[in-house]
Simulated assay, not measured.
Amino acid sequence: MKPTLFYFSTALTILFLVSNNAYAKIWRVNSQSNFNNTSNWGENYGGTPSYPVFKQINEAVASASVVAGDTLHIEGSVITYNDAIITKRLVIIGPGYFLTENTNVSNTTYDAKIGWIQFNPGSEYSQLIGMNIINDGNTADGKVYVTVNDITVKRCRMERGVQFGTLLTDVYILQNYFAAGTNTIYTNGNTAFVSPSNIYFNNNICLTTLLWANKNILECNNNVFAGPANVLNLDFNTGSFKNNILKSAGITANINGGANNNVQYNTVSNSGVFVGTTGNVWEPNMTALFVTNSTSDGNYKLQAAATNNVAGSDGAERGAFGGASVIKRYTLSGLAAIPVAYDVTTNGVSQPGTGLLVSVKARTIN
C-alpha cells in the first residue's frame, strides 16, 4: 500500500495549492518515474500524457506545459536528482529533511537530494523550499547558485551554501539549515564581483561561518551561529543584526568593521563579544540555554525555563525558532507552509458501497 499512500498525501498537497492559486499548475517530479517525453509519462507513479510525472527537474523546466508561476513538487526518493538549471519563475518545493528524526513531518522517510541548483535569467522571483542540497562528490556540489534578482532560498538543508552572481538585488536566505562546511555564502570568484545590494539572512541555523568581509547584508536577524569554536565566525556589514545567538565557545565576530553599529539584543557565548550593545546577554553555559537529546535541528530550540532565554527586540524569543511572526520562524525539517499528511493508514479491505476506508492524520505547517 505504500505507493498509494504516498500518492494520497501528494494529492492533498496539490489540492491545497490549487485551491490557493486557480491559475498556476502544480507538477510532480519523481526521480524514479519512467518519464521519457515520448512514450512514457511517469505512469509508474500515476502520470498521464496531459499531466506527466517528470523524472528530473530539468525536464519539467524544459516542458512547454510548465509556465512561469507554476509549482514543481519534488518528491522524496532514494535516487539523488540530477543537478538543475532554472530558467522560469517557479516555486520548487521538496519534502524537507531530517524526516527520520522529527515526528509528524512526513508519511515517508525520503527527502529530495540534489547536488546543485542554479537560477538563471528568466527565473526571477523563484522560490526554492524544502530541498536537501548535498555534496555528491563534485566541487560544484552543495550550493544554490543565484545569478538573477529576487530569489528566495527557504527551509533548505545545504552542505555548502549560496553563491551569488554579480550586481544582484533582493536575495532572501530564510529558515535554512547550513551543515558544517567552509562558509554559508560565496562570491562567484570573479575579480569584478559586486555583492548583492539586498541580502536578507534571517532565522537560519548555521554550523559554519558567515564571512563576507567588507560586503553588505541588509538584515541578519534571529539566527543561531554554531560554527567552529574559538575563531572568527562572522565578518560583514549590516543594517540590522539582532536577536541572534552565537552558540559556539569562544566565537568572535566583526560586524560593521568592529564598530558594532546596528547590533542589539543578541545572546553570546563569549563575554568579549558585543560588549556594551543594547540587550546583549552573555551565556557562558550554552547547554543550559538549548534543549538537549532532540534532533539535528531540534537541538537548536531554547529551553523555555532557561535563565538567559530572554526576549529579543520584538518581545519574542531569540534565535532561529524566534521572532514575532510565526511564519518567519525556522520550521523543523524545513517543511513548506502547506498541509502535511504524516500518517495515512488502511486495512486494505474495500467495504461494499463505501470503497476503501483510509485514516489520515495531517497538520498545517506555518
Rank of each mutant, 00 (worst) to 15 (best):
T364Y: 14
G334H: 08
I185N: 02
R329C: 09
N309Y: 12
V326M: 02
G137M: 08
T169N: 00
P49L: 00
C206T: 07
N347L: 01
T108Y: 00
L15P: 08
G258R: 00
I134V: 15
I173D: 13
Y81R: 11
S63D: 15
Q118T: 00
N222A: 10
G227A: 06
N183R: 06
I117F: 11
N366S: 14
N203T: 03
E75Q: 15
V273Q: 06
T152C: 10
V194M: 13
Q56D: 15
A253C: 13
V67Q: 10
N366L: 10
S325A: 15
I365S: 10
D170T: 03
N149R: 03
W41L: 02
P228F: 04
N183D: 06
R157G: 05
I327A: 15
L12P: 06
N221G: 07
I133F: 10
N149Y: 04
T208V: 07
L128H: 09
T169G: 08
I365W: 06
T238E: 08
Q264V: 01
L167C: 07
S19N: 00
D141V: 08
N366V: 15
N82A: 14
L72N: 02
D235T: 05
T166I: 10
P228D: 08
A68V: 01
C156W: 12
I93W: 05
N204D: 11
F16D: 07
A68N: 12
I173L: 04
G334N: 01
P3L: 07
G323C: 14
D150Q: 04
L218N: 00
N188M: 10
T287D: 13
G250H: 05
N138V: 11
P121Q: 11
P52G: 03
A64S: 14
A179S: 12
N237D: 08
